[in-house]
Every structure is written in structure tokens, then in C-alpha cells.
């Protein structure tokens, strides 16, 4: 083997090993949380309220709270995100306005979540007097995931071949009719991946709900959208940093972390499956 090839081998193996280390890191995190978290999971853990200063009992109110937040943020972000994606891809021509809107959408995606929290508190909680509530939290989280939904909608519309549009126009269909009946149904599975990724994001988001909705401890379930709720990520934060008995609440913390990771894992896998299936189907 000459020197050139030897150097290449050494370097390539270095890269390979470093990449493997990243993979090992991910699995170490997953393993660590799964192995201890799975022990805490039981039917009671998932269906009971926290008891005895949150060292015993379950995380039911936090699960319900997170579900409310997922639903609330998506009710708001899904239509606006999809509409916005349609308008950007189907109606707006490449130009200053389009690049400005895309720039702003990407900027919004880069805003730190704690800034969303501040903004949500200033606008929804204080200015609009929603108080710390599901409504305020959902709107804040909705804005947070809006760029994800817009981007995936845009991408999936872009991947629909122009021949479909032209065929529809040739049949005398209007543009809107074409979008509704031809383009959207084709692109929809891919649009869904944006929703699924948003679910993962919303269920794990903490900083944005700290001051807009999250309750430290609230055993009863919410009655209206103006109530506070517990949420899984904030519950984990409370358990690890400011619980009454941090050591004793460790098992509950592991269990909560496990549920969170589980949600993210499942949403990611589903999103990938849909994407793969769609790509294959489309190519064929």
C-alpha cells in the first residue's frame, strides 16, 4: 500500500470511528433512560396523580396536560401552517416578497424557545389577559412549531410533479380546485410528517410554557382552556431540580423522562416511515 492510500485509510477510519461514537452516544442516552425509566412505568404510573410530594404516584395530570397542549397548538398551527405553505409554493412567484416571508419563517424557527416564552407571556398572558392558561400556552407553542409545518408543507408540495398541475389545468380545472383535489391529496402524507414532528417538539418543549401555562403541581384536571395544566417536560424539570425530595423522586423522574423519550422516538419513527413510503410510492 502506498503512502497516499495509507493516509486515506487512517483518516477515513478516524471519521468512521468518530461517527460511530456519535451513534454510541445516542444509544447510551436512550439506554440509560430506558433501562431505569421502564422500571417506573406501570398502569398506575400512567393513570394516577402524583402523591406524597411527588415522590410516589403517577404522572397522569402531566400526560393529560401535554395532550391538551399538543391538540391546542396544532388546532392553531396546522391550518395556518398548511395554508401558508400552499400560498408560498403555489401562488407566490420567486421574488422579494417570497424570499422575505421565507426569511422571516426561518428566523422564527431560529428564535430561542425562552424568547417565545417571554413573548407569549407579554402578549397572551398579560396583554390579552388569558392568564397562565392552556390557551396562552397553546398559542405560544403553535407559533413555535409553525415554521416546521410551513417548511414540510412547502417541501411536500414542491415534490409533486408539475405534470399533475398541467393535466388538471388542461381539464379546465381552476388553480384552487387543482390544489384542493389533485395536489394536496398527493402531498398530504408528507404534510403529515410535519404534524408528527411538531407533536414531538411540543411534547418536549419546556422554556416556552414555563410562564404561559405550566403548573408546578395541580392534581385536578383542567375544566376550560383558561386553566393551567401540568406538562411532562416541566414536570421532569421540577422533579430533578426543585422537588421536595429530589432523591426519593428519582424513579418518577426516570419514568417521566422515559415517557418523553418514548413520544419523541415514536413520532420520529412514524415520520420516517411515512417519508420513506411516500418517496418510494412517488418514485415508482
Amino acid at each position: 500500500m502506498n503512502k497516499k492510500a495509507l493516509i486515506q485509510q487512517i483518516i477515513f477510519w478516524t471519521f468512521r470511528i468518530m461517527s460511530i461514537m456519535v451513534v454510541i452516544l445516542l444509544f447510551a442516552i436512550l439506554y440509560f433512560i430506558t433501562i431505569r425509566g421502564a422500571q417506573a412505568i406501570s398502569w398506575d404510573f400512567l393513570t394516577k396523580s402524583p402523591e406524597e410530594g411527588m415522590v410516589k404516584g403517577g404522572i397522569f395530570p402531566a400526560i393529560i396536560g401535554t395532550l391538551y397542549l399538543i391538540a391546542g397548538s396544532l388546532i392553531f398551527a396546522f391550518p395556518i401552517g398548511v395554508f401558508s405553505g400552499i400560498y408560498l409554493n403555489e401562488y407566490l412567484k420567486d421574488g422579494k416578497l417570497k424570499s422575505f416571508i421565507q426569511l422571516m419563517t426561518n428566523n422564527l424557527a431560529g428564535v430561542p424557545s425562552i424568547v417565545f416564552g417571554l413573548f407569549g407571556m407579554a402578549l397572551f398572558v398579560n396583554r390579552l389577559h388569558f392568564g397562565d392558561s392552556i390557551l396562552a400556552g397553546s398559542l405560544t407553542l403553535g407559533l413555535l412549531v409553525l415554521p416546521i409545518i410551513i417548511r414540510t408543507t412547502e417541501e411536500s408540495l414542491k415534490s409533486v410533479d408539475d405534470s399533475y398541475r398541467l393535466a388538471s389545468y388542461a381539464m379546465g380545472a381552476t388553480k384552487l380546485y387543482t390544489i384542493k383535489k389533485v395536489i394536496l391529496p398527493l402531498a398530504f402524507p408528507n404534510v403529515i410528517t410535519g404534524i408528527i414532528l411538531s407533536i414531538g417538539r411540543v411534547s418536549g418543549e419546556t422554556a416556552a410554557i414555563l410562564f404561559t401555562v405550566a403548573a408546578y403541581f395541580l392534581p385536578k384536571l383542567p375544566h376550560s382552556i383558561f386553566d393551567q395544566v401540568m406538562a411532562l417536560p416541566y414536570h421532569l424539570y421540577v422533579l430533578t431540580t426543585s422537588g421536595t425530595n429530589i432523591e426519593a423522586s428519582r424513579p418518577v423522574a426516570y419514568g417521566t423522562a422515559f415517557v418523553l423519550v418514548f413520544i419523541v422516538l415514536v413520532t420520529n419513527v412514524i415520520a420516517n416511515l411515512i417519508r420513506n413510503y411516500f418517496n418510494k410510492k412517488y418514485k415508482a
Binding site: 461517527s19 456519535v22 451513534v23 452516544l25 445516542l26 442516552i29 440509560f32 433512560i33 414532528l197 414531538g200 417538539r201 411534547s203 418536549g204 418543549e205 419546556t206 422554556a207 417536560p233 416541566y234 421532569l236 424539570y237 430533578t240 431540580t241 423522574a253 423522562a257 418523553l260 423519550v261 419523541v264 422516538l265 413520532t267 420520529n268 420516517n272
Partner: peptide, 24 residues
Amino acid sequence: ILKPIIELLAGIPSVVYGFFGLIV
């Protein structure tokens, strides 16, 4: 195989990273 793994790394919530960091 690698790409979804990297994406998963991006998807794990920051509190979980904090929890992992605090305990490990």
C-alpha cells in the same frame, strides 16, 4: 441508517438532555 439517528438526537427534548447531564 445514520441520518435518522442524527435527527433523533435533534428531537430529544432539552429537559431530557438536562436530566441526562445532571445524572451522568
